[in-house]
Computed example of a mutant assay.
Amino acid sequence: MSAIARRVSTTIFAPATSQGLSRDPSQIQQWRGIRVKVYEGNLDRALTMMQRKMQSSGMERLIKEEQTHHIKNSEKRVLARKNLERRLRSENLARKLQTILIRKIRTA
């Protein structure tokens, strides 16, 4: 967990100027970080809440993308298959929406 915490602290709390970002408020928003309150000294619950917030905000995905360790071939195949399925789903959805729009335009 400490390695992830170090990555998160360097990723989240880095000042906007050092990362080459402008002072645009929409870009600064992503660098504000995740805050979790610890109630009654229950650190385990706070860590699980932080993990949920990281997953929901997409932060965990960004951290995993930045990791530079070796990825096994089996993991690469799984990721490639998931990306292919995601791309095919989005293409099918785009195709369906396009046919619906064409029908609406022709009938209108």
Rank of each mutant, 00 (worst) to 15 (best):
S2I: 12
V78S: 03
K96I: 11
S18Y: 03
Q29Y: 10
Q29H: 10
S26H: 10
L97P: 07
M50P: 03
K72F: 15
I12C: 04
A46M: 12
I34M: 02
R45M: 07
I28F: 00
A5W: 11
S2Y: 14
R81S: 12
V78F: 08
G20T: 11
S22K: 09
K72P: 11
E85G: 02
P15M: 04
R7F: 12
L97V: 01
E60T: 10
N83Y: 13
R103E: 14
S57A: 11
H70D: 09
H70W: 14
L47T: 12
Q27N: 09
K104S: 06
K82H: 10
L79M: 13
R86S: 15
L84I: 06
Q55P: 01
A3P: 10
Y39W: 03
R61A: 08
K53P: 08
R103D: 13
S9D: 08
N73E: 15
R103G: 04
G33W: 01
G58F: 11
H70M: 00
P15I: 08
P15C: 04
L62G: 05
K82D: 15
P15T: 14
G20H: 09
V38E: 14
A14S: 05
K64L: 03
H69V: 15
R81M: 13
I34F: 04
R52F: 03
N92G: 00
Q55M: 06
P15L: 06
N42L: 05
E40F: 10
S9K: 02
Q98I: 09
Q30S: 05
Q67S: 06
W31M: 06
M1E: 13
R95F: 11
R23I: 07
L79C: 07
I71V: 15
N83H: 13
V38F: 12
R89S: 04
A16P: 05
L62V: 12
R106M: 12
L97N: 15
I71Q: 04
T11F: 08
A5H: 06
N92D: 09
Y39G: 01
K82T: 13
